[in-house]
Computed example of a mutant assay.
Amino acid sequence: MKRIIYTVVLLLLCTASFAQVKKRKTPTKKAPVTAPVSSAPQPTTAAPVSTAPASTPATTAKKTKIKTPPKDGFTVRKDVDSAVMVPYADVREEDVYYSKRIWREIDLRDTVNSVLNSEKSKLIEILLDAIGNEELTVYSPKDTVQGKVLEDNDSFKIALSSQEALRNARGLTEGSADATTGKLSDPTLKRFRPDDFQKFRIKEDWILDIKRSVFEPRIIGIAPMKMVEGNWQPVFWVYYDDVREMLSKQRLVNPSNDASVLTYDDFFVRRLFASYVVKETNPANKNIVDILGLTDPKDPRKLYESERIKKSVSDFEQSLWEY
């Protein structure tokens, strides 16, 4: 009996819940409000007359924009980042176990070295421009006492002024005589000809640093050479550490890769040049030609001796290590 009552109650509850229906509210539409129509006549007003001047065609014309010229390819970059210069490692004198000084000559007529004499950038022009702007200190290639030339000197003892360095490089013209007075005019600098400088001489030290266990060369100085009285002679010397920062900002023309960012400093530090030895340290302080007593500068024995010196340095390096 109780079960029947429970079921009846549940059915009533279910029917009551489903019976609730939400009334939907329908929005009432408001009648539009219309303004009362007035029968009085409306006053008429005249349209305002514009006093602004009529625009001329010159002012309405669009301004033409200056177009930036397009970039000529991907290799138009001429400058390089100065931060690419890798500084030398510090070497203490007490860590240098072995040292050998060698003088080399770089011939720009060689295909490998021709990049130093390219039409876009020449090493001699970079040096002379820096000397003319007094940004670089140069040194005399000769020892002089009271106007007398004693011997070749590359120890950076006698500093030259910018005018003296330019005079050594370019030379002076002979003074011309005045037609009326007969006085000679002061000599002037000759026209600069880069093709006169076809060789460069470098002085370097091969050192063995026992602290780092490294056998490496360090370039000490560089000198442009010019033909004087049938012989190639340096016109001035430049301390390489002074000129290295400037060379690291000058891009080198690389014929193998137009996108290369090699600098003149990279060319020397990475040993990308071809050269031959002309002198090594010896008791007599003579070069190879004087030691061998050669009269012909094209004598092949000079190159044989140069290769012998190169091999002696290489053999010393190979003898340091055991495999």
Rank of each mutant, 00 (worst) to 15 (best):
V21N: 06
Y98I: 06
D90M: 10
I288K: 00
A159S: 13
G293D: 08
A35F: 12
P27G: 12
L128D: 00
T173R: 09
Y239L: 14
G73L: 05
P32M: 03
I222T: 00
R201E: 14
C14T: 09
Q146C: 10
K120M: 01
W206P: 01
Y304V: 12
A16L: 11
L172N: 13
R104D: 05
T111V: 13
R170Y: 05
V37W: 01
K63L: 11
A52Q: 07
T181Q: 03
T75C: 13
P43Q: 14
M227P: 06
V96E: 01
A159K: 14
E164L: 11
T263K: 02
G221T: 10
L292E: 11
E151S: 15
D186P: 02
P53V: 09
I4T: 02
Q42V: 15
L184G: 00
Y6E: 11
T45M: 03
P194Q: 06
G175T: 05
A58R: 11
E93F: 12
K157Y: 02
L11E: 05
T295S: 13
M1C: 00
V9D: 01
S118L: 02
M1A: 15
K120H: 09
D265V: 02
K29F: 14
V235E: 13
A31N: 07
T64Y: 01
D95Q: 01
P41R: 13
K286Q: 14
N168I: 00
G182Q: 11
Y239D: 15
G171I: 08
D178A: 10
P27C: 12
K148Y: 12
V49W: 00
T137E: 05
A19K: 04
S121F: 00
K78W: 04
